[in-house]
Write a protein that binds this DNA or RNA. Structure first.
Length: 493
RNA sequence: GCCGCCUUAGCUCAGUUGGUUAGAGCGCCUGCUUGUGGAGCAGGAGGUCCUUGGUUCGAGACCAAGAGGCGGUACCA
């Protein structure tokens, strides 16, 4: 005889960095997405959905290699041996889509999209390996006009989300300015200088956390942190470090003043000049449209991660109602941003295709809104029609249907168990009103409506079970044809 | 990736210098009560003590490796 075999039971567990999302989170996230979509639509953007998987080479250079096979991107081999990757953002797939259908699309092509993106990285607090992004992009429009529009879209979404002006700020910078300054410091604006430029960007990004000294170290030789880990520096010369630090602190609350300051800083570099001109144009368009400095400012410390940005970049930042010592609103953090990425589509086509976009992290935005107390009330739980008598189920369903027709969320108990169990279920669901119809009520053409929170409250004064049972607190019996009206009224308060 | 801390019931945790059958509170289920939530009372289910290997007469406890979790740092298209 074979040994007694244990049945195989899989462990009910979830891969790290992936989340199950509860009802309230889903509701507030879909509500935010709906508001953002409304803004995108109002600006004339069209919806588009691309698939979760793309060919790995279409997404970028993040092919799995022998040394670090699982860094950054989730990849697997198709049955034809081609590498597929889960998208890590919505921008790279858009570039592929536009390149694939280039001739058939109107230019500029303007689309919006929300969807899950996947990053194969170590998850952390508020950081997951799957999360939802919500984007809009304009492909095929150069200059700074489309960028100005994206900035307006970002500010309008903040408003649509329920924030008042002053609770958010769009901060705008331009990659070309830094390119120009680095060029003057001997970092060529070519492939050869790209690693160094990246290191400079990463260093500037840490200004908040490390302060000027730390950033200075990262711009120069490098820096060792408390755990003894060493970060290699950008190895700029002292003059270059000074120029970069001077640039990052050059902005002023007044946009035109900042443009003037920058104009002096970039010197003779063509690229730098271009960057200044673009900011000046953005300012003109924003000002003419009524986007004042309280909503959009120029901020030379804005970096936007790294990678493919080639021109104007911006972040949507949320601000707490409290202010710091200098009277400025406290930053809650960046919940989204965007910028110009002129090289992403041309990767596929070999000819220049300008593009610009905006993207925000949906759950990050929602949790910031929660912290700011700017979320709306949760959905009301349903009215529960309890099942006293299974023979009366047709009546229960008819009653629930009438309640729904009156705009009331209603549910017939579909499980098994006596009324005790059903009321426990109702408690657990947070139900406010339960409808009780036994044969007595049914024959009399009546329904009993029980107010559960009120009943629970009244129960506190009751000592004995007999008293509890005979009191039957917080319920009333009404004629059945008045049920919907009475319930609607009782739900009001 | 690097550094540190942690892992015993659904949850929060106790568990003596290594010693019989691993505990508590809360939660959950059943009954008292086949037409009513709470309280009370009575009963019950639930554990590969994260995994594997080692030390030992004996390991939940000690050692090693791994996994998972948390925090920091790096990275974040």
């Amino acid at each position: 005889m074979a040994k007694k075999q244990k049945p195989f039971r899989p462990k009910a567990r979830r891969p790290r960095g992936f989340e199950d999302r509860p009802a309230d989170a889903i509701r507030s996230e879909t509500a935010l997405i709906a508001k953002a979509f409304a803004v995108y639509e109002s600006f004339g953007f069209e919806p588009l959905q691309t698939p979760a998987f793309e060919y790995a080479d279409a997404l970028g250079k993040f092919l799995p290699d022998e040394d670090r096979p699982n860094v950054g991107v989730f990849a697997l081999q198709d049955d034809d041996e081609q590498w597929l990757s889960l998208r890590y953002d919505l921008t790279a797939p858009l570039a592929r889509f536009v390149a694939e259908h280039y001739d058939a699309l109107p230019k500029p092509f303007r689309r919006y999209q929300a969807g899950s993106v996947f990053r194969n990285e170590k998850p952390g607090p508020g950081r997951f390996r799957e999360f939802t992004q919500c984007d809009a992009d304009t492909v095929g429009a150069g200059g700074a006009v489309a960028d100005a529009e994206m900035i307006m879209v970002a500010a309008e979404i903040a408003r649509a989300a329920g924030l008042s002006d002053g609770q958010y700020a769009v901060r705008v910078n331009n990659r070309k300015l830094l390119d120009g300054i680095l060029e003057a410091s001997g970092v060529p604006n070519t492939q050869a200088g790209s690693v160094q430029r990246l290191q400079v960007l990463r260093a500037i990004d840490k200004l908040d956390r490390l302060g000027e000294d730390g950033v200075e170290a990262l711009l120069g030789k490098g820096r060792e942190d408390e755990s003894g880990d060493y970060t290699d520096g950008a190895k700029l010369d002292p003059a270059g470090i000074k120029a970069v630090l001077g640039f990052t602190t050059a902005s002023d609350p007044d946009r035109q003043a900042t443009v003037a300051t920058l104009s002096g800083l970039v010197g003779p570099s063509d690229r730098g000049r271009q960057g200044v001109d673009e900011l000046a144009e953005i300012d003109r368009l924003l000002s003419a449209t009524g986007f004042g400095p309280d909503r959009v400012s120029f901020d030379t410390s804005v970096v936007r991660g790294l990678g493919y940005y080639t021109g104007p970049v911006f972040e949507l930042e949320l601000l707490a109602d409290i202010t710091d010592r200098k009277g400025r609103p406290v930053r809650i953090g960046s919940i989204g941003g965007g910028g110009r990425y002129d090289d992403l589509v041309s990767r596929f086509r070999g000819q220049p295709v300008p593009a610009t976009g905006f993207s925000f992290g949906v759950s990050r935005f929602v949790s910031a809104l929660e912290r700011m107390g700017a979320v709306e009330a949760a959905v009301q739980p349903p009215v529960l029609v309890t099942v006293f008598d299974r023979g009366l189920l047709p009546h229960y369903f008819a009653l629930a249907s009438e309640l729904r027709a009156a705009g009331i969320r209603a549910e017939v108990f579909t499980g098994s168990g006596n009324v005790t169990k059903q009321l426990k279920y109702a408690d657990r669901r947070g139900v406010k009103l339960a409808v009780l119809v036994g044969s007595d009520e049914h024959e009399a053409g009546e329904v009993t409506i029980k107010d559960l929170p009120l009943g629970a409250d009244m129960a506190k004064a009751i000592e004995t079970n007999e008293e509890w049972k005979s009191a039957r607190p917080a319920q009333r019996t009404v004629p059945r044809d008045q049920a919907a009206a009475v319930i609607a009224e009782m739900l009001e308060d």
